[in-house]
Each structure stands twice: as structure tokens, then as C-alpha cells.
Design a protein around this nucleic acid. Sequence first.
DNA 1: CGAGTACTTGAAAGATCTCAAATTAGGTGG
DNA 2: CCACCTAATTTGAGATCTTTCAAGTACTCG
Lengths: 246, 246
Amino acid sequence: MSVPNLADRIGDLLPLSDDERAALDQLIERDRPVRRGATLVRENDRSTELFALKSGRMMAYQLLADGSRQIVRFVFPGDLTGTSVLVYGKAQQTLVAAADSVVAPIERAQLIELTTRHPRLAVAITALEQVERAVLSDRLAAMARTSAHARVAAVLLDIRDRLRRGDPSIGATFALGLTQEEIGDAIGLTAVHVNRMLRQLVDERLIARSGGRVTILDEARLRRVAYHTDRLAGVDLSWLVGPREA
Amino acid sequence: MSVPNLADRIGDLLPLSDDERAALDQLIERDRPVRRGATLVRENDRSTELFALKSGRMMAYQLLADGSRQIVRFVFPGDLTGTSVLVYGKAQQTLVAAADSVVAPIERAQLIELTTRHPRLAVAITALEQVERAVLSDRLAAMARTSAHARVAAVLLDIRDRLRRGDPSIGATFALGLTQEEIGDAIGLTAVHVNRMLRQLVDERLIARSGGRVTILDEARLRRVAYHTDRLAGVDLSWLVGPREA
DNA sequence: CGAGTACTTGAAAGATCTCAAATTAGGTGG
DNA sequence: CCACCTAATTTGAGATCTTTCAAGTACTCG
């Protein structure tokens, strides 16, 4: 596979029976292309669909009362997004394609039906949600407690790590695929200040930049500066009963 | 009931069959008292227990590399907490009692067993998790994008709303039950600045204070100042099949 | 009554934002 | 391939917000 899909992601957490894998594959069988810059769902839209990203990249954001935009999450292939329609019946966040993308739309009833027939998959999907939550908590702590310098470092590492999950050949150099304004909207800074912090990271010889591409020069030090923790690392579902017994 | 428990909270989302309610009641049958100030779980502790709060109040926090504390969540009666042990097998956050409390410890295997036998409850618990996530997203946006003034206003409203959920007789006046340092650790401010912002809210006639108690004088305006949204309001699980058919 | 913790206030330092302008990069039609 | 157009980036200077440090006051518990 070129990019991981939902079944691959879940398969990484948990050995899947053929039956379970087939059910997941069927869940994401439909394709819907979304052009770069296009909006897939708008905040507060009434909807009963959620999405698995198959390729490309998307961003989920909320608008605040004063018009500013908070990018809550970058969505990479294999991620499930819009899960809050399960509960709210409407979208809590706007979903925009950051690159040409393909999503699999999933009716919430489909997902419920899947989890009813395959309780282990329900647990696995819950696990993915829990990881999201842990990431969100970390980001909250970072926004509240760390400097602009640290947050910019953190977002660089985060994007690189997530790109690498889809393509292990990615090394220290990668295309960020974000404008400085988007970075700012993700970590609560103005574009101007993001620019200054990037320059500072360059001056400190932590990264290099050329033509939209970033090179991490000293990953250990950058990670220290960013107070970075990898939340997918500690996930352990091995205690769940194996596929046969389930 | 004096304070809501987990079964009540879920019952608010979804009409429960007798069977389902009994299963929930059984899930939280054990009692473990925790004295004010005591630590129930420490971040990174290996553990397979999660908890439902039965009475009192708790706080979940993370420590950052520089030693500062981020309070990620205030836990009220009926809340489930520590759910990340499902996935990580260890606690992601430290849990401390903010008041004398009683929790029901729940083995993760118990919860899995419950959700396997009662798929609708699995959905309901997922719903609670989704609400938590939406709240966390809002808080992220608030940290990243709103002023100290707005954040202090928001935390006051948040605490009041959650107290009221447990005791509808609570009106405009309530005991905050938090030190200014704790408020600061929740919203990313120093205690000194929290103090100044409280004073400013008083000067603006939005609130009054006396002896640890806060009175909201102009709720509409305070809510506007805080950019506040109530995330439990929009929850709708009515589309799930009723208990009989399930 | 005394000791410790929480609260309060002031002044100065530091971080980040705002505003403004100059420069660069990328995309398009000729 | 060039010329142009727009969006993105870069830099400077001053304003604003929040923190830090320091000191004094109030409250609570034993």
C-alpha cells in the first residue's frame, strides 16, 4: 500500500481476523475526492456522515466568536474524522482539504452496525479516539504552558512524524505543506510570529529551510526544545482477547 | 439522588432498559473514598483501573518537562475518568481529589465485558467521551486564541454549570472550590494574573466575590465575554434504536 | 495567638501582537 | 519564456498583554 487506510491503522493496534478486516474494508469502500482548498463539511452542518481519509491531507478547524480560526487537528491518511456526528448529529468542526484528497464517507448507522457485530473493532476504534484525546491534551498543555518557540518546534516534529507514518522513507527533510498562517492557526500564534520563530530555529541550527521544505538538523535537541512526546508509541491492546476467541 | 452517578448520566442521554441500568449499577458498585488532596493515580502509573466519580470533586493534570502543571479536566460526580488505561495500560494524567470524594474503581476488563454484552451502552459511553473531546477542543481554542480575561470568565461559567448539573438549586452564587493557582493551572495563567482578572471582572460588575464564593451578576454579558458554548446541550442519541429492539 | 497558605497589589521585564512596508515565490495568460 | 498578479514570506518599530519579582495583607487551622 502507498498510504495506510483505516484497516491498516487498526491492524497495527490489533491482529485482525479475516472477517474483521473484510468488515473494515467494506466500511471504507466508497471514494469521494476533495480538491485542495475545498470544504468537505462545515461547522454546525447537520450531518450523519463521518469520514476516513484515504489519501491527501485535511484540516479540522473551529471558528471563534471573534472570527479567528483554531485548527484543532491535521488529518492524515488512515485517520477517522468527524466522529462527533455520532453524538451531536452535526459537525463540530469544519473540514477542509489541505491537499487534493480522497475520503471514504461512512454513515454513522454503518459504524454502529459494525461495532455491534465486531466488538473488538469497537474497542480498537475507541483506542484511536483515545489517542486523539491524549494528543489533544498534550496540545492543550502546550498552548497553555509553552513558549511560541517550543510550539513551533513541536508542530514541525508532529507533522514530520505523521508524514513518516505514511511513508517510512521520509527522513530529516520534508515538505511542510502548510502556510505560516496555518501553522499559526494551529498553535495560537500570528503568522508574523511564526515566521520569527522559524527564523530563530534556523539561527539556532535546529532546522534548515529551502523552498517550502524543512530539514531537521538536530532532532534530539529539537525534541527537547519542543517538550515532545509521541502518543502513539505507548498504545497496547495486546490484553484484548485474540480474534479467534472473540 | 443527591448527586448523579454514571448510570444517571447515561440515562440522561438514552432511555435505559432495566437490564442495562442494572449492569451499569453493578459496574460502579464498589466504593473507594479519597480524601481531599490525596492522589488517586499518578501520571505514568501502570494501571488497569478506571474510575467513576460518585461524589466530591477531582482534578486530572499533567506535568510538563519544565515542572509546570496543566490541569486538563475537572471531574464531577457521574464523570468517568482514566479511560486512557484502556489503550495505554497506564495513566496519562494524575488524579487528585479537590474535595473529599468517593470513586468507583472499574477494571478495564469489566468495562469491555459490559460493552460487549450491551452495545448500546458502548455507544453511550462513547458519547460521553465525545463530549469530553469537544470540550477539550473548545478549551484548546480558548487557550490559543482568547485573552486571560475571557478564559477566567469561561472557567467560572464552566464550574458553575457543572455544579448545577449535580444540584439544580444552585443559582448565581456558588463556591468555586479552587485556589487561584489551580484556576491558573487550568487555563494557563499565573495565579497573580488570575487575581487581576478576577478583580477586573468585579470592577466590570460581571461578578461579585465574598469569602471564596462567587456571584454571577450579569450572566449574559459574562457568557459573551467568555465566548462560552455548552457542549452537553446538543447531544442527541435519540436516533439509536430503543432498548426493546436492541 | 502563631504559622502557614492563599490572596492582593505595584513595578519592571519579557513575550507576543499589530501595523506597515518591502521582498519573494508561484501560477497564468500572452 | 516573459510579464504580471496575487498570495506568502520577511523585517522593523511600537503597543499591549502577561509574567516575574517583591512585599504586604487576610484567612484558617491548631
